[in-house]
Nucleic acid binder design. Structure first.
Lengths: 256, 256
DNA sequence: CAATGAAATCTCATAATAAGAGATTTGAAA
DNA sequence: TTTCAAATCTCTTATTATGAGATTTCATTG
């Protein structure tokens, strides 16, 4: 889908940079985006001049220093990060665990804040790394609170993963599982994303709509049913409070 | 200076976000950039859709989740970060200190990688935070290796700071001081940026041109003359090696 | 140094898009 | 419901973007 307006066209260059393709040559960019040489070089010049891209060896481009700076700004300015910090601190003080705030945007979920008190943290999702949507407590905590018209296509899209991790065998089963999560207000998953880890996650809602998730991961050995219940309650409550503080409204859909 | 091409105009919105102004309302953006309402909203929509900006409370915009993701990508793809890591590890193993890699771009310097073995790290320049150009060993290590036509305007610009920290009283004195730094291959500063800290920095050169700096900071109490000399030699050598590895060429201007 | 070839940039006519004045819609608050 | 501010839309005109092709720059090789 080739964009026609030039603001979007220049920004589309940035869209190509991903974990699997963090470096691009101009030839590759031209081919992938369908831009002609002069047009692409013009865009590259604009992006380089503002610091969003930089050249590295081999004539390849990667994201530039202004990205680094903007992330610093983002860390400091994001109300979700600031508001969540004391909650993360309390949760990690109460249990040896890793506590994460994960934002959902577009079709991705990114950790934006985390703290760990686990002796050997086993989670490997540092700030900014996209997480899978088809697996894990975090994804499920978010999906479960989506309006049904939005949820149904996602279930189709991730049906294979959802089946594989045991959420349900059919779309109806999966829907029912999501309904249970919504009623419980929290999702729990065992080793789906990170082997050996239990993830317990509750959504952070803005006007009832999930925009992020608070997740606590503990090592599987420590995770009795009672502990999981206790952490679940704490996670649910902390997520509720964070949502209230950041979005100025009580979460109103916890018991649909 | 109002840009006329629309690629640059949309990117100029991002330029406004800074440490002192991380949040902007549309009204403020309109006023600052001189764009009309429909134009600005068009740009904001583009930037929001790609995730570079997001709305927060009070109708204010801040940098968005795609920035967070791109910084993650940048951390992993930047050859300077990867190449420097073992060097930082070695320096922090040898001394209780903080070791930093700082990139210079445009008129800013940003830490892009750091490690610390100091018992109480006193440096407060996390990844991405811009550093002052007029003070400190890092700035001086970079400036000293600039070609004179480029250095002279910078001296004028930062003359007040440079005088205040004792580099020199006149532009001639300051130039002479930079010449000495260039000959030494390393710059040393005492408490100019962070009170109580000694900074020892050497430039990382690309074809003789400074693009970054390696800096070690130690607490002032530990810093005998002999220790500073020893660290200086290690920093100079590590910076040289990093430059060689990243930019594929020996640094050729160490003894002009 | 010259030759070569790839990368990068420039020129310029034409087509496409962007801008913005003004109108309209949407959303939130009272 | 009314009001008002924020956000979006319409449409004409002006401006800019595009891209074919030419030219320059840069790096490598002999």
């Amino acid at each position: 889908m080739k964009k026609t307006n030039s603001q979007d066209r220049v920004l589309a260059v940035l869209d190509l940079f991903s974990e699997s393709r963090p470096l691009w040559t101009p030839e590759e960019l031209m081919r992938e985006l369908g831009y002609t040489r002069p047009t692409l070089y013009r865009y590259l010049k604009s992006l380089k001049d503002i610091g969003l891209l930089m050249s590295t060896r081999g004539g390849r481009f990667t994201l530039g220093p202004r990205v680094v700076e903007m992330d610093y700004l983002s860390r400091r300015a994001d109300p979700l990060v600031a508001t969540a910090a004391p909650h993360l601190a309390r949760l990690t003080a109460a249990h040896p665990c890793t506590a994460l705030i994960v934002r959902w945007y577009g079709d991705k979920m990114l950790c934006v804040a985390s703290q760990s008190s686990a002796p050997n943290p086993i989670s490997s999702y540092p700030r900014g790394r996209p997480m899978p949507m088809g697996r894990g407590a975090i994804a499920r905590s978010i999906m479960a609170f989506l309006p049904k018209p939005q949820l149904v296509p996602l279930i189709s899209r991730y049906a294979h993963d959802l089946r594989q991790v045991g959420v349900g065998a059919t779309p109806e089963d999966i829907l029912a599982a999501f309904k249970r999560i919504r009623r419980a207000g929290v999702a729990v998953a065992f080793g789906e994303v990170t082997p050996g880890a239990v993830g317990i996650a509750a959504p952070i809602l803005d006007a009832g709509y999930p925009v992020a998730s608070l997740c606590v991961t503990v090592g599987g050995q420590q995770a009795s049913g009672e502990l999981i219940d206790r952490i679940s309650a704490e996670v649910r409550e902390a997520a509720r409070q964070i949502g209230t503080e950041v979005f100025d409204e009580p979460n109103s859909n916890l018991n649909m």
